[in-house]
């Protein structure tokens, strides 16, 4: 077994952190919503964003990797390369399992008539509009996107410190503000709105996946120069 596989093995031993915790948190949200759905009659049904907690959890997991498993394994003589590939393999597994479970729960939701509580938790309009393979790609892309943006944030902070990280975030926000002011000035919002609305969730997931690849590549570069 090479050392990349050993890194993956280490992560697999931590399955509770990768699966049990995020699904536990999300399921608590589900149960709360289910009870509310049962107790109040709603004609148009209840829609929640409860699944967002899972993705936010993965973003945090990315940040935490930089402070926990990475320095631990670097100290144990693991190559940065092996850490990156082994961890990425774990993230891909998490993405696949998450996508499969999400799809299964969405199917269960429609089969049970929204859990008998008129609750829309997993099977959501727009997100679950496309064919099955598109519906599978959406959570997969989100898992990767969120994990690597967390990893990149953590590594950037480790490399450049709190002050520069914070400054970069402020600058990014300012650039966003400037862009939106310019769009307003030249009255381009209608076109942009149209374009945004024309994109399907599947198309967005492709964008999310492309960004995830960019985040992963930048993370890799930072990781290669990271010190203990």
């Amino acid at each position: 077994m090479n050392r990349t596989m050993r890194v993956l093995t280490l992560h697999l031993r931590e399955s509770s952190l990768w699966f049990l915790m995020p699904w536990g948190i999300m399921m608590m949200s589900f149960v709360v919503n289910f009870i509310i759905g049962l107790s109040i009659e709603q004609e148009q049904g209840m829609y929640t964003g409860g699944i967002a907690s899972l993705y936010i959890y993965l973003f945090v997991t990315g940040i935490i990797s930089v402070a926990q498993t990475f320095p631990f394994l670097l100290g144990f003589g693991i190559r940065r390369n092996d850490y990156f590939i082994g961890t990425s393999a774990m993230v891909v597994i998490v993405g696949i399992v998450t996508a499969a479970l999400m799809q299964a729960f969405a199917a269960l939701e429609s089969a049970t008539g929204n859990w008998g509580a008129n609750l829309h938790f997993f099977d959501l309009p727009y997100l679950n509009d496309g064919p099955w393979y598109q519906q599978l790609l959406i959570p997969f892309a989100l898992v990767l996107n969120m994990y690597y943006s967390g990893l990149l944030t953590g590594l950037f902070n480790r490399r450049f410190g709190h002050f520069i990280t914070f400054t970069v975030l402020v600058v990014l926000a300012a650039l966003g503000g400037l862009a939106s002011a310019l769009i307003t000035k030249y009255d381009k919002w209608p076109q942009i709105g149209e374009w945004l609305a024309s994109q399907t969730a599947f198309q967005y997931s492709l964008w999310a996946l492309a960004l995830a690849v960019v985040y992963a590549a930048l993370s890799y570069l930072l990781l290669r120069r990271a010190t203990a």
Partner: peptide, 26 residues
């Protein structure tokens, strides 16, 4: 090489047995 650092970091939730299991792996 085995380098035992004074400042060696262990994941927060690790117990002594987890450290030993990881050592066996690496």
């Amino acid at each position: 090489i085995c380098f035992i650092k004074e400042s060696q970091k262990y994941p927060d939730h690790y117990r002594v047995c987890d450290v030993l299991r990881a050592s066996a792996l690496f």
